[in-house]
Simulated scan of single mutants.
Amino acid sequence: MDEKTKKQIELHSAGATIRHSSPFAELEHYSNENKLEAEFIKKWCVPFYMFGINKADEFIRNFEPIKAELNLEVVKKLLGDFNWRTRIVGAYFASIMEFKTVEDIIGIHLLKSQVCYAGNGYCLTLAKFNTQNGIEYLKKYLDYYLTRKDLHYDQTGAMMALKWTDKINGTNVMDDYLELYQEWTSRNYTPDINTKFQGFEQQMNNLKRIKTA
């Protein structure tokens, strides 16, 4: 196998299934200098990435024995890895531990959308942090990605994150994007906002359960 083919396979496995040009391409994103060791991934990623916070009881069982060891350095290593699995777990952990110092790392990761799946974790975390800075990342994301009907990324997740912060803050930011969102979605299928929000809300409640367990 030649090196080019090998690299393509590695990128696909990491979650870079669709690569696109965007106005965020030149943003400098956080990246580890070295690859993560297998033991680190086995301990901090493998038990948490597949079902994530949708199975809170399982997450808590796996998290409880290592919770005391979790710190900012671990979270940054997870977020700095070029793989959706480590990045989404890093976002979960940042939310659970309220490590707001990584908000810009997560916000830029969301804007660049380098790997699939992880965006849901980014949106949950920005919603949990509920800062004006995080809300601006969500708005920037929607300003651009709702114009890309060819890219079905995390537009719905970003909408749900804004709906969450609107509910907490007594604002109506998400409403400003409803028309664009309806135009972005398929003519044959427009996800019901309220139904989608129920799922998002459950995930947010699970994060709270995990934090207080």
Score class of each variant (00 low, 15 high):
residue 17 T to Q: 13
residue 60 I to W: 04
residue 120 N to V: 13
residue 173 V to F: 09
residue 99 F to C: 06
residue 189 Y to V: 14
residue 197 F to E: 01
residue 39 E to F: 11
residue 126 L to Q: 06
residue 131 T to L: 04
residue 125 T to G: 00
residue 163 K to W: 08
residue 193 I to F: 09
residue 171 T to Y: 07
residue 18 I to Q: 10
residue 209 R to V: 10
residue 105 I to M: 04
residue 142 L to S: 08
residue 48 F to H: 04
residue 126 L to N: 08
residue 81 D to E: 06
residue 190 T to R: 12
residue 144 Y to H: 05
residue 102 V to F: 10
residue 7 K to G: 03
residue 120 N to F: 11
residue 122 Y to G: 09
residue 210 I to A: 03
residue 162 L to K: 01
residue 203 Q to M: 09
residue 60 I to Q: 03
residue 39 E to Y: 12
residue 169 N to T: 07
residue 87 R to H: 06
residue 129 F to D: 01
residue 114 Q to H: 09
residue 204 M to T: 11
residue 57 D to H: 07
residue 69 E to I: 05
residue 8 Q to M: 10
residue 65 P to S: 00
residue 154 D to A: 08
residue 108 I to H: 04
residue 135 I to D: 00
residue 115 V to D: 00
residue 167 K to Q: 09
residue 133 N to P: 06
residue 205 N to M: 08
residue 126 L to V: 03
residue 41 I to E: 08
residue 205 N to E: 14
residue 198 Q to H: 15
residue 115 V to F: 01
residue 77 K to Q: 13
residue 133 N to K: 14
residue 84 W to F: 13
residue 52 G to P: 04
residue 136 E to S: 05
residue 54 N to W: 15
residue 16 A to C: 06
residue 51 F to W: 09
residue 51 F to K: 14
residue 176 D to S: 14
residue 95 S to V: 03
residue 92 Y to N: 07
residue 209 R to D: 02
residue 104 D to L: 06
residue 162 L to N: 03
residue 65 P to R: 03
residue 25 A to K: 15
residue 72 L to K: 15
residue 112 K to P: 00
residue 26 E to G: 11
residue 175 D to L: 12
residue 181 Y to Q: 08
residue 22 S to P: 00
residue 180 L to E: 15
residue 194 N to Y: 04
residue 143 D to W: 03
residue 21 S to M: 12
residue 55 K to P: 11
residue 173 V to T: 13
residue 199 G to V: 02
residue 54 N to R: 15
residue 113 S to H: 07
residue 195 T to K: 15
residue 85 R to P: 03
residue 38 A to F: 13
residue 206 N to C: 03
residue 177 Y to G: 05
residue 199 G to A: 05
residue 33 E to Q: 14
residue 161 A to D: 00
residue 162 L to W: 01
residue 56 A to W: 06
